[in-house]
């Protein structure tokens, strides 16, 4: 390769890196809200966003098209989230179904929820099994298509549809009965 071509490549590489970094920077808020909706814990959500962004920087070259950045980041974040839970000291190698138990341990987090109606809603969401909560958040908050959710969660599209359907039914039922109490919402904890 000629020297001038090498310099041109370096320049393009630098431009591409800058575009990627700028795009990543713009996703911070979106990622935080997704992390929060999954974890219900501000500090954990912040950590999760940081870990996701660092992982994205590390794996930058795996993303072929910046248009797919949202789905790619969501997939990274999901893997980080599940890894954190699985390698958690108290829940080492937990299955996904076991992760849900983190949501049902008593603990007060009074600063987290201010509005009474939202309180009940968050508690209902927290009571959903994680596999249902994650697809509902990806569909309703993030606006991903079923195909994208299937790719992010590495789950067949039929399963995604069934989880969304069952999740919403359960959420509606929880909200109707609203037997959840304010001080029973619990964030996921790392240790």
């Amino acid at each position: 390769m000629k020297f001038s071509s090498k310099v041109a490549d370096l320049f393009c590489e630098s431009q591409e890196r800058r575009r990627f970094n700028a795009a990543l920077e713009n996703k911070y808020d979106r990622l935080y809200r997704l992390a929060y909706a999954w974890s219900h814990h501000p500090a954990m959500a912040q950590d999760l966003v940081q870990e996701t962004m660092l992982k994205a920087l590390e794996k930058r070259k795996d993303l072929s098209n910046l248009e797919h950045l949202d789905a790619w980041l969501s997939k990274i974040m999901r893997n980080q989230f599940l890894d954190n839970m699985r390698f958690n000291r108290r829940w080492e190698w937990a299955e996904e179904s076991e992760i849900d138990q983190h949501f049902s341990v008593d603990c007060s987090e009074s600063e987290m929820i201010k509005k009474q109606s939202q309180d009940a809603f968050y508690q209902a969401m927290a009571k959903l099994p994680f596999d249902q909560r994650e697809v509902i958040v990806l569909a309703d908050l993030q606006g991903f298509s079923y195909q994208e959710i299937s790719d992010i969660t590495s789950t067949p599209i039929g399963t995604v549809m069934s989880r969304i359907s069952r999740g919403r039914e359960k959420l509606r039922s929880l909200l109707q009965h609203s037997d959840v109490q304010r001080d029973k919402v619990v964030p996921l904890r790392r240790n």
């Binding site: 935080y32 929060y36 909706a37 958040v137």
Partner: peptide, 13 residues
């Protein structure tokens, strides 16, 4: 309504 409730609950966090 439920779908929009999910969105509004987290979009303004």
């Amino acid at each position: 309504a439920l779908k929009s409730q999910v969105k509004s609950a987290y979009a303004d966090i």
